[in-house]
Amino acid sequence: MNALLHHALVDLGILVSVCAGLALAPSPLVNPPQVPFGVRVPPHRAGAPEVTAQRRHYRVRLLSVGVATAGPVLLASAGLDRPGVGGLGGALLVTVAAIVLWSRAHRALVDVKERGGWYRQTRQGAVADTSLRTDPVRFPWPWALPAVVTVVVSVLAGVAVYPDLSAELTLPYLSADGTVHPRYTTTPWTAFAFVIAQALLTAAVAGTVAAVLRARADLDVSRPKTGAALYRRYLTSLCRSLLATAALMDMMLLGLSAMAWSEIRSQPLTALVIGLPCLATLAIAAHLLLRVGPGGRRLPAAVIDPAEADTGLVPRDDDRFWYGAGALYINADDPAVLVTPRIGIGWTVNLGNPRFLALTSVLVALAVATLTVTTITA
């Protein structure tokens, strides 16, 4: 394939992918429908014409920016030797535009909500299910086994081959010029670099799962019993998906370790080792978006109790604790460290929680101390 055409396809592919993802950002497919553009609205207002209009304006303007950016991206592809640079620059520009458009839509909905009195004559409330503490969702240990086994196999294989390794190793990594294979002196750190990454990744994901199992539940205040049952299924699905993703990434790192230990530099094999786990991870993400949804809203309705009466409550209007157009939650009086986000699926951190601030301070201090010691001894 002509090099110029290859560069143009790579750059346009990056730009189109980013535009498509950002265009989907305000969709109920990605975000809870009751917080469009990070603004809390009553459930009966989630499909209001004002909300629909802001979604349409956001998408039209964002796609217009994407189309206008395509020309400069193609010119960059023709003038630069490295594929992807122009596409990344265009993607950055589109991302900045998306942030501006999102913020404008956020402010517009806040104004509409206040002028229209959307929360007048509504009964606001919050619910909690104490059984999530007395009988919590259990850690899905069977789903953690593939990742743990992969790490153990990697350690045993590394210990077996380490005595016979050559004096230098090639550790592949992806750069702007493609996959490169720099050589490093063989030491335990270089020989087990990917294995160490496996262990850290597995521990981080397991810790994340353990934390979210104790996170505060965001339940449907109109039907608390149904909401609690649905949240349990949502929590189970999300934790299993996280552990499955960790196993896939560990398998990818095991493949890279094997290539480094055996001195294999095959580009097709490298693409296969990296590509297959990444494609499987994308399939898991698609499952979460299409079959689970934010807060489990697209899970099968088998948990709905038809006998449960509607409480008549709506979620509390807590916009005052959300900053950055609904991206940041800061509430020093809230004991929860993890809360349901207003953008995307999963959880976000309460940046005002004293425990989180103390832990962050300790980690930053340790990082600075490690960097200082490393610099002095280098």
Rank of each mutant, 00 (worst) to 15 (best):
241 S>M: 13
374 T>F: 14
254 L>P: 03
263 E>G: 05
257 S>K: 00
216 R>H: 09
286 A>K: 12
174 L>E: 13
20 A>P: 11
102 W>R: 08
118 W>M: 03
51 V>Q: 05
249 M>H: 12
254 L>C: 09
200 L>F: 09
282 L>H: 10
310 D>T: 07
33 P>Q: 14
195 V>G: 03
164 D>M: 10
284 I>V: 00
342 R>Q: 00
84 G>D: 02
358 A>D: 00
125 G>N: 04
3 A>G: 08
133 R>E: 02
225 K>E: 15
236 T>K: 13
37 F>R: 01
65 V>P: 06
374 T>W: 12
332 A>F: 03
80 L>N: 10
30 V>Q: 01
221 V>P: 02
42 P>H: 04
335 P>S: 01
231 Y>W: 15
340 T>E: 10
365 A>L: 12
310 D>I: 06
226 T>L: 06
277 P>G: 07
295 G>I: 01
248 L>Y: 06
63 L>V: 15
51 V>F: 00
87 G>N: 06
1 M>C: 12
369 A>Y: 09
153 V>A: 15
339 V>W: 02
158 G>L: 09
260 A>S: 14
309 A>T: 02
104 R>T: 00
152 V>R: 04
68 A>L: 14
291 R>N: 04
155 V>A: 09
71 G>A: 15
161 V>F: 14
51 V>G: 06
3 A>V: 13
195 V>Y: 02
175 S>R: 03
6 H>M: 01
118 W>G: 04
141 W>I: 07
115 R>T: 14
277 P>W: 11
254 L>R: 05
155 V>K: 10
275 G>W: 04
319 D>W: 01
8 A>W: 07
365 A>W: 12
262 S>F: 08
274 I>L: 08
163 P>W: 06
191 A>W: 00
94 V>I: 05
100 V>M: 14
338 L>F: 01
165 L>W: 00
30 V>N: 04
310 D>V: 11
243 L>I: 06
168 E>C: 00
160 A>M: 13
195 V>P: 03
346 G>V: 05
5 L>A: 09
84 G>I: 01
28 P>E: 01
83 P>C: 09
366 L>M: 14
282 L>C: 08
191 A>N: 00
196 I>L: 11
38 G>W: 13
327 A>E: 03
268 P>G: 04
251 M>W: 08
96 V>Y: 08
71 G>T: 15
41 V>G: 08
